[in-house]
Amino acid sequence: MSASNAKRGVSFYLLAAFFTLFVVFLYGPMLIIFVLSFQGETGGLTFPMRGTSLHWFSDLFSSSRYGDLAGGFRRSTGLGLMSMTITAVCCLFAGLAFRSRFWGSGTLFYLCIVSLVVPGILLGLGISQFFQILGFRLQWWLSGLGAHLSWTLPFGLLIMFAVLNRYDNAWDEAARDAGATPRQILGWVTVPILFPGLIAVALFGFTLSYDELPRSILTVGGKNTLPIEISNMTTNVTTPALYAIGTVTSFVSFAVIALAFGLIAFIQKRRARA
């Protein structure tokens, strides 16, 4: 095996080439639409570029052809923030609870797995029918939020398990030995130590919710989220405006990811400083 650093055999270069191709495969198409979103006013959905302009971006916000994009963006951001907060808090405590066996822990775990596994649209159907049977109106901030949580919470829990794998329960006991109350232990020891992991859980909470489509369709009621608006655009918009909204929403995602990673890196660095 050419695993040693000293000599890199043919296999290293073959595998490196494969890996590079995979990365190109992942990012290439996205880069194409980022470029095409700056298409000139007369340009179409494919190359060649007929000049460059910001026309399609301004078109997004000025034209009414594209549905309620601004409203969708507001609601998606709001849902993302709510899902993020609730996911981080619920998964932190649930993760702590799962450190010991408790009655029903197996059932709860499998319920979470089931939620990841069932087709999203179907869960959306179940939630919407459940609300309707109870006589509640479907609201993006209630049934929609619930649908999003059914997606973000199980993911968050799995990540929390991974994060807690590296948590030594003796830290809690050391704090207790120093006389700390449960609340002090949580605030001064558990949460600060887990903080980088909690940011990762929060990142998942936000982005999974922000981009969620199948569970949203039937649960948000009359007001659409951004992914629903965009999915509608895929069938009836034939201009580069589609790419422009793609660029915008991807930019938001990248900004959130960068923020999260920046925050984690900052905390790690502060802890490692001499």
Binding site: P29, I33, T46, S250, I257
Partner: peptide, 15 residues
């Protein structure tokens, strides 16, 4: 890319 929109990633194959 996992943290970005699936719809957009799908759409990006069209051009």
């Amino acid at each position: 890319p996992f943290w970005t929109s699936n719809i957009i990633r799908m759409v990006s194959w069209i051009p």
